[in-house]
């Protein structure tokens, strides 16, 4: 959590840079990142707030040219630690470690949003919002990730959230993890859960093909008709609840679209790495 040497008074003279993946195909991919940046700009906590993307502009290699501050907090708006946060981002930003001194600047590289314990708060809020009036004890909460192939540890991030929610005293009937491409498969959601109500939350940074189309098909909410849902985009989230396989199923948008993600970004800033050595002159 927050420590004394990286205080909010430091933030006001500093820049916040939020890094996202972005997409050359999906116009919604970068939307949550921009929204969180807008929100944090409105709060006026930082001298400046900028975004940069792997697949969109501005790119990682140019974002440092866009800021005036000598102190920079960099927060990856990524769901887990992995290839991007450990390899691509440090390389493209030319980071030297958790704290980088370069060109008269101090850059603090924070952990990605998805691994912060406060993600639990968002998942609980999302579950309460999406199934209003349903007692938690009658809900099976399913947190869905991609699994395998992608060289990302989203599986670890999701498993840790499942543990945190079980321990949170929120009182859900059960909390389980499920994946698109590895066991336990989300397609078997009815076997993985027992409660009469099932709330499914995709653990992704943005809505896109996975949340608009792939997961709904795996859940059985829609037929496999590529493009049919993405044409209507958010429509699949507005038809709750679904009566399916003898249960009532509530399907949520990607967790990263929640406005409270701005707070998680701030939590990662508050936990920013410390100076290991005194700043270079």
């Amino acid at each position: 959590m927050a420590d004394s040497s990286v205080s909010s008074s430091t933030w006001r003279d500093a820049a916040l840079v939020i890094l996202g993946h972005g997409s050359t195909q999906n116009p919604d991919s970068s939307t949550p990142t921009w929204q969180h940046a807008d929100e944090l700009r409105r709060r006026g906590l930082f001298r400046e707030v900028q975004c940069a993307f792997w697949k969109e502009e501005p790119g990682f290699r140019e974002v440092m040219h866009m800021i005036d501050s000598d102190h920079v907090f960099v927060v990856p708006n990524f769901i887990s630690e992995g290839y991007f946060t450990r390899d691509v981002l440090p390389r493209e930003l030319e980071l030297q470690g958790p704290v980088t001194h370069a060109g008269g600047r101090t850059i603090r590289y924070c952990d990605p949003v998805g691994i912060h314990p406060s993600m639990t708060r968002l998942l609980l809020k999302r579950a309460a919002e999406i199934a209003p009036g349903v007692p938690p004890s009658e809900i099976s909460l399913v947190i869905v990730g991609h699994g395998t192939s992608l060289n990302e540890n989203s599986t670890a991030a999701i498993k840790s959230q499942v543990e945190l929610i079980r321990a949170s005293g929120a009182g859900f009937g059960e909390v389980v993890d499920a994946y698109m491409e590895e066991e336990p498969l989300v397609a078997r959601w009815d076997e993985l859960t027992t409660a009469p109500n099932v709330v499914v939350v995709p653990f992704f940074i943005a809505d896109g093909l996975h949340s608009y189309e792939d997961i709904p098909v795996l859940l059985g909410l829609t037929e496999n008709s590529p493009g049919a849902i993405s044409a209507n985009q958010g429509e699949v989230f507005r038809r709750n609840p679904y009566a399916l396989r003898g249960r009532q199923l509530f399907y949520s948008a990607a967790i990263g679209t929640d406005e409270l993600m701005a707070d998680v970004i701030m939590d990662q800033v508050a936990a920013a790495p410390q100076e290991s050595t005194s700043p270079a002159a």
Partner: peptide, 18 residues
């Protein structure tokens, strides 16, 4: 910076040799 992301910063940094 929304129309042409980083264009101003890139140009300033480039012309200043940074």
């Amino acid at each position: 910076d929304f129309f042409y992301p980083a264009a101003l910063g890139n140009w300033v940094a480039f012309t200043q040799g940074r």
